[in-house]
Computed example of a mutant assay.
Amino acid sequence: MPLSSSSPASSGAAMRNVDFWVGLILTGAGGYALFEASGFDAASRVFPMAVASLLLVLGFMLFLNCIIRGTGRPLPLREIGLVLLCVVLVGGWALLLKARLGFALSTFLLQLGLAWLAGERQPLRLVAFAALITVVTYLIFVVVLDVRLPRSILSFIAPGL
């Protein structure tokens, strides 16, 4: 039964709505990112705080829109497992960064996992795709944007490696 955009949704219908959960997750992630970014030094915190604030506000707007209007799509229960695996991959990437494995190695492993989840099964293509994305993002952040990447156990080779 589709949700009507002209009447408020019942709480049960809202919780079966993908926008309800996406809004809730984005609001939580934006709030946490804002909290973390507030601990950065003054020169480094402006951009992360702006992105985190935007994430928090847009997530909350989506959440409220779902609650008030009842708009959105039904929750795709079959795809939740895939989404959870992506969340686990990104969480693992963050933990590897925190463990000082380095941006390049952590990102390479993340891209391997994401490409595999996207359906790529040929090992050579998986490695080539992950390496290409890792090199391009590294160059964008380090060379073009001059971002200091987190220190890693391989920083003696290159910064943030």
Rank of each mutant, 00 (worst) to 15 (best):
L64S: 10
V22K: 04
A158K: 07
K98S: 13
G28M: 08
L58P: 00
A130L: 07
L58D: 01
V135W: 07
G119N: 05
I140Q: 02
V144C: 03
G39K: 08
A128S: 13
E79Q: 14
L82H: 11
G30V: 00
C66I: 04
S5M: 09
I68F: 13
F60M: 11
L109H: 02
G81K: 09
I67W: 01
R148V: 13
L62I: 12
L112V: 14
L110Y: 01
A158L: 15
A43Y: 07
L110S: 05
Y32S: 08
M1C: 08
T134M: 12
F40W: 07
A158W: 11
N65V: 05
G119T: 03
S38G: 14
A33I: 02
R125Y: 07
E120G: 00
P123F: 12
L149G: 06
G81E: 03
G59E: 01
V88Y: 03
G102A: 09
I157Y: 14
V136P: 11
V51L: 15
V147G: 02
A14I: 14
P2W: 05
P150N: 12
R148D: 10
P48Y: 04
L77H: 08
D41F: 08
P76F: 09
A115L: 11
M61T: 11
V127K: 04
Y138A: 01
L34D: 05
F63R: 05
T107S: 14
T137Y: 09
V83A: 14
V22C: 09
G91K: 02
L112W: 02
G39P: 03
V147P: 01
A158M: 14
L109N: 01
I140P: 00
V136G: 04
L34E: 05
P150M: 10
R45Q: 12
N65M: 13
F156G: 06
P159G: 08
R121L: 09
L154P: 00
G59Y: 02
V22N: 01
K98E: 10
S38C: 06
L58E: 05
L64D: 01
N65I: 02
R78S: 14
G81N: 05
G92I: 05
E36T: 13
G70M: 04
T107F: 12
V18T: 13
G160W: 04
R45P: 00
L109R: 04
C86T: 10
W21I: 03
T71Y: 11
R45Y: 02
R125F: 03
R148G: 03
G28K: 08
L84F: 14
I153H: 11
D41Q: 12
P8C: 13
L82Q: 10
P48H: 06
L34V: 08
L64I: 09
L154S: 07
